[in-house]
């Protein structure tokens, strides 16, 4: 410990600390894995159960009949897909009002989510939970890439790392998101996101997009660390901090008189 304390002012200490921070962030990030879930068909008893859950957890903001209040929108016609996406990614129930509901820890088990979805779907027709055959991600990766670049990359970035919108809103990262949730987001247009209904991007094309996203999730880091896939900003920062740092460290060693 003493040796450590003595070296805490060493120039390398900052670099070490930075490195440690980066590693910790990476570990924290990688543990943030998505939960697997399965969809089940709606039934009358499910609607009943869903209503109970709704009244207990959602009605404060969305109203007792899901008619909406001044803090939460009406849920008539949002469809099961919307509920499955919002609750299934932990965005709802919302912890605190903010510019945008962030992805968070999922509060309900999948049967509960399905029940909630069935209840909301029973209120008015809306987009249903997508057919599993279109969310498997077994489509045409290259075509999905083209569709992704035209329709999605402008907000979510070329690698699905996310991007900024106006006034603190943002397009979230799409890395390691379930195919079902990607599909549901497209058909329901959550929050700032516009709607990409099945007439705009066909279910098959949506599957292609999901396939592309899954392919880049699985893609090994071709050239080494990807620096968050954020483009030239992180590369420039790396060059300044680590590139220049290493060069200067060597130069200082070179210029210093040997012991």
């Amino acid at each position: 410990m003493n040796a450590l304390a003595a070296r805490r002012r060493h120039p390398a200490a900052i670099a070490l600390l930075l490195l440690l921070g980066l590693v910790l962030t990476g570990v924290a990030y990688s543990t943030f894995a998505p939960k697997q879930a399965d969809a089940s068909p709606a039934a009358a008893s499910q609607v009943e159960e869903g209503k109970k859950l709704f009244l207990a957890n959602c009605s404060t903001c969305h109203g007792l009949q899901a008619q909406g209040t001044n803090v939460g929108p009406s849920l008539a016609g949002v469809g099961a897909a919307s509920v499955d996406f919002q609750v299934g990614t932990g965005r709802m129930p919302l912890a605190k009002p903010d510019v945008q509901a962030p992805k968070a820890k999922v509060r309900f088990r999948q049967p509960e989510i399905s029940a909630l979805a069935a209840y909301v779907a029973s209120l008015a027709p809306g987009p249903p939970i997508p057919d599993a055959q279109y969310t498997k991600g077994d489509g045409d990766v290259a075509k999905g890439g083209e569709l992704f670049r035209v329709n999605c990359a402008m907000c979510h970035n070329f690698a699905g790392s996310g991007g900024a919108l106006t006034r603190g809103k943002y397009a979230p990262s799409l890395r390691n998101v379930q195919g079902k949730h990607i599909y549901e987001a497209m058909v329901t247009g959550p929050q700032s996101m516009p709607v990409f209904n099945d007439a705009n991007i066909s279910p098959q094309s949506k599957n292609d997009i999901i396939s592309y996203l899954h392919a880049i999730d699985k893609e090994e880091n071709v050239g080494g660390m990807n620096l968050g896939n954020l483009g030239p900003v992180s590369e420039g920062l790396f060059a300044w901090v680590f590139g220049l740092g290493l060069m200067v460290a060597f130069a200082v060693w070179l210029g210093r008189k040997a012991a």
């Binding site: 990359a153 402008m154 970035n157 790392s161 991007g163 483009g231 420039g236 920062l237 300044w240």
Partner: peptide, 10 residues
């Protein structure tokens, strides 16, 4: 198309 975070090199 375009990507979010379109930047030049530093």
């Amino acid at each position: 198309p375009v990507t979010a975070g379109s930047q030049p090199d530093w």
